[in-house]
Amino acid sequence: MNETMQERQMALTMKRNEYARVCRRLDDAQTRLSAAVAENRQLERALTKEQKDVMDLGKFSFLNKLKEWTGSLDTRMEKEIAEAAAAEVAYNESVKHVEDLEYEVSVLKKTAADPDYAYLDEEWAAFIEEKELWIRMNDETSQATLQKIADDRVRIRSMMREVDEAFEAGEKAERALDRAIDKLSNAEGLSMWDTFLGGGLLVSALKYSEVNSSDDLVHQAQRALRHYETELMDVQEAATASFQVNRNDIFTFTDLFFDNIFSDFAVHSRITEGKQKLNGVLQDVRRVQSRLMQKKEASEAELVRLDADEKRILLG
């Protein structure tokens, strides 16, 4: 097949592959958005219930007054506030997740509506008709081999582009995880002081400032990991295990208001556990990044081989 026709086929095939990938991602993002909206509504109902439980305990009644005198109200109030705080964190993260997916869907819809894709099917059909005529008039063994080389080259280059995009997403995920881990390390140090060295109200406040500051950083890490997973789905034979951070393991307890060694220790343990989970995810990302790099190197070697095969045929 002549060089011009090979170049046209390569360009059209890559465009068709890209459009198919955009459509596939759009379908997936819309499905995930529907599930996220449903989960958001469920979490909102749970938060409303927890808030009502706290408010009900605060209402005056002779029964509540009796519980207060006997000391049982404080214990129950502490439990209800902790449950409401956990429900609030889960709901807030769900809201951010829905917003992320809405943005992702809007971008993909805009990309899918690109005028460059409008007549792609017609362009491909016209090219196939022209190609079939050319092959009937030039049926030689070497032409079939050149076509196979051209097809392999398109496939490999498309895959390499997907590997590059996945690798770039992985680098962003690594940076986001590093930032979140650094912030939790600061909180962990303050929590150690507060828990075992009697840091007092000021240290407790500083500790929560660091924990609360980590909130957006952890969310950014989650968002980067979700994008990384999406990119990995496009890479054949790449690891696509879920890298989901359970952000509910990192939320504010109530020892700032009920300051005692038991709640302090629980917060310290939870911060440490959350940091360990983030470190584990970071190691998973780095392992997959290494595999992506190996896949790219193998693909580059395959392109070199194809170039050599083509040169042997063309130069005899």
Rank of each mutant, 00 (worst) to 15 (best):
R155D: 06
R136Q: 09
R8Y: 10
A301C: 06
D100T: 11
E229W: 07
V98Q: 13
V304S: 15
R161I: 00
L256N: 13
A224T: 01
L47P: 01
S242I: 04
E171I: 01
A176T: 01
D234E: 10
N279M: 13
L206V: 00
Q143D: 09
A11Y: 04
A180L: 04
K207M: 06
E310M: 09
Q42D: 07
G58T: 00
M160T: 02
R270C: 11
K67I: 00
K207A: 08
S242M: 06
D215A: 13
S209R: 09
K110N: 12
E162G: 05
E188K: 08
A90E: 06
F262T: 11
P115R: 09
K207V: 01
S106N: 11
A126H: 14
E168W: 05
N279T: 02
Y91L: 10
L43G: 02
A125H: 08
L303P: 04
S106Q: 11
G58N: 04
R76T: 00
R41M: 05
R287H: 15
F167V: 00
R45T: 01
E3V: 10
L303Y: 11
L202W: 07
L306T: 09
D116W: 04
V211M: 13
S34K: 12
R153P: 01
E140M: 10
D100R: 14
Q30L: 07
A239K: 13
F257H: 13
A169I: 02
V154N: 11
S290G: 12
N40I: 00
G274L: 06
A11K: 08
D121R: 07
R21E: 14
T145Q: 12
I81P: 02
F196R: 07
D53G: 02
E99V: 03
G170E: 03
D259E: 08
M5C: 03
Y91T: 01
R286I: 03
V154I: 11
G189Y: 01
A176E: 03
L190F: 05
V285H: 12
S72E: 03
F243K: 11
E140G: 09
M293L: 15
E129A: 13
L101W: 08
Y103R: 14
P115G: 12
K67W: 03
S209K: 12
L217V: 01
M14T: 06
K79M: 05
T254H: 14
Q220T: 03
N186F: 05
R179Y: 06
E210Q: 06
Q6W: 05
N260W: 05
R286A: 10
Y208F: 13
L232W: 08
A11V: 02
A36F: 06
F196I: 02
G71F: 03
H219V: 02
L292I: 02
V211N: 10
T4R: 15
H227D: 14
D100M: 15
I181A: 11
E229R: 11
D215C: 02
A20V: 00
L202H: 09
Y91I: 00
K277A: 12
S191I: 02
A169F: 02
L177Y: 03
D249E: 13
G280Y: 05
E310C: 09
S213T: 03
Q147C: 07
W193F: 13
S269E: 14
A125M: 08
Q283N: 14
